Simulated assay, not measured.
Amino acid sequence: MKLFLKDQLPLVGFYLLQMLLVSSVYWLSGETRPFRIVLYGTLISTVIFIVYLIVRYTQLHHVYRALQEPKQLIMEPFQPLGNAPVAQAVKGLLHEQERKRQQEMGKLRTRNEQQVVFMNRWVHQMKTPLSIIQLTLEDVEDQTASSIQDELDKMRKGLEMVLHSSRLEQFEGDFRVERLSLGEVIRGSIAENRRLFIRKGITPDIRIEEELHIYSDAKWLRFMFTQILTNAVNYSDSRSGKKVMMTAYVQGERTVLDIQDEGIGISAEDIHRVFNPYYTGERGRQYHESTGMGLYLVREISARLGNRVELFSKLDEGTLVRFSWTNQK
């Protein structure tokens, strides 16, 4: 209503000006009863003008109401706007804009799907030469072979990160929820990263009871644990015989897993930003291997799997990453 009144203000102004001019003409015409004529004319004109405004508002009130709520108009571009010519013109404009938007979204979706397919094929193609190099290194026993093996592990983890990043947008079609032993998943993740633990001199300390089970996707869960364990090992001081402790327990209606390292920790100004994409932080910049994507992917995957992830840390006191899942009855 307010928008309608604002839109009609120029018309109201011209109407009042017209009434003033007509009254002046009657007054200057020399009529003997100008006041009564002017009063009757003004009354009739005003009634007609008010009826016009009412009819106009009835025709366009859907348009004005939609324009006062632009977000709702964008979300529902096909809502009825009335049969007035202006309403039909606005409706046509909105429909054309929506059609173009759908076309652009379709193009972007197709382009994204093609990119995901390309990335998946590229990653699998890169795994083949890595496997060949891996087999070749098994017959070589010297320091150089050990260094090459470390670099192969880094390349393999990088490829896995690229693969999971590309699949994230199509997550709904790439996961399977099942009942999993939390201890088995953790031990599997440690086994995949055993060379990293050995090379860094870090000892895994598992404190998980066998009967603890959760409902999740094993592949995505193992990827998340690998990211956290890799960070825990890389940011620990191998010269001090440090440990990475994995403790699981039931707390109320949730099953909780704590992964605690004894590393360098995270500063207070960085801790609220470590889950942002590409953010490495002050300590991360000291390690050139840091991409800033690991914790971001962990958070995104956790949100899609329905589990909770939290991080607690202090400088030089280590970092605690806490996963929790709702217990299924």
Rank of each mutant, 00 (worst) to 15 (best):
R273Q: 10
Q88V: 09
Q8R: 09
P77R: 05
R308W: 13
V256T: 06
Q18F: 14
R322T: 03
E151G: 12
V298L: 04
S23C: 11
V233Q: 01
T203R: 14
M246W: 02
Q72M: 06
V63M: 04
M224H: 06
N120E: 15
L81W: 00
F171V: 01
G41N: 10
S238C: 08
I198E: 15
S238L: 04
R239V: 10
S181R: 02
L212Q: 03
R194P: 08
L159Q: 01
G92P: 06
L16S: 12
K242E: 09
R167S: 12
K100C: 03
M1I: 13
L182E: 01
Q134R: 14
V63F: 03
K100E: 10
E69P: 02
R187T: 09
T319L: 02
R283H: 12
R308S: 13
E253H: 13
R56Q: 12
V116I: 08
G265Y: 00
L21N: 10
H61P: 08
Q8K: 13
E192D: 15
M1L: 08
M75S: 15
E192Y: 02
H288W: 15
D205I: 06
R322Y: 02
V256P: 05
T128D: 14
K242F: 07
I214A: 00
V25H: 05
L152W: 04
E184M: 02
F197W: 03
H213C: 11
I44C: 06
E138H: 15
F49E: 04
R322W: 00
S240P: 11
W27E: 15
G82A: 04
S147M: 10
R109Y: 09
E76G: 09
G318A: 01
I198T: 15
V250W: 02
S240F: 12
S165A: 10
T226M: 06
D205S: 10
Q97K: 15
K200I: 07
P34D: 08
